[in-house]
């Protein structure tokens, strides 16, 4: 999908109008941002907004996140284990220390895999 984020009042107003007029292409709206369908029409609307407001419109292409394909199981398991921790105030760094769970630095330097 296309994530469109606006950075000025004028751009935000135009995005709102676009969303109102093209419900089929607009998947979701959030305040000054919206998700468009990954279709040529979604791209057309994004390009129009960028044409009109240049740097005040950011367009990113997003794709669904599959936690079973995009990362290995250790990350998923670490998240599940941390959310099930007994002491809610334990920071993740301390929680992961001395376990098989990846430490925060390892998480930050590891990219998601390209696979779907």
């Amino acid at each position: 999908m296309l994530l469109v984020v606006t950075y000025s009042r004028a751009a935000r107003r135009d995005l709102r109008n676009v969303c109102r007029g093209h419900e089929r292409t607009v998947v979701r709206r959030f305040g000054r941002a919206a998700l468009f369908e990954a279709t040529a029409h979604g791209a057309f609307l994004s390009c129009r907004l960028r044409e009109r407001h240049s740097d005040d419109v950011q367009v990113e292409r997003t794709r669904p996140f599959n936690e079973f394909a995009d990362i290995d199981a250790t990350v998923r398991e670490a998240a599940a284990a941390y959310e099930a921790r007994e002491e809610p105030s334990t920071p993740y760094r301390r929680f992961a220390a001395g376990t098989d769970h990846p430490d925060p630095e390892a998480l930050k330097t590891r990219d998601l895999s390209e696979g779907r």
């Binding site: 606006t6 950075y7 000025s8 009042r9 935000r12 000054r32 740097d55 005040d56 950011q58």
Partner: peptide
Amino acid sequence: RARGARDARERRLELEDRVA
């Protein structure tokens, strides 16, 4: 670089809203 520029634009938008 654009990330920093967008932070600045975001602050400007907040200010625009406050002025309005």
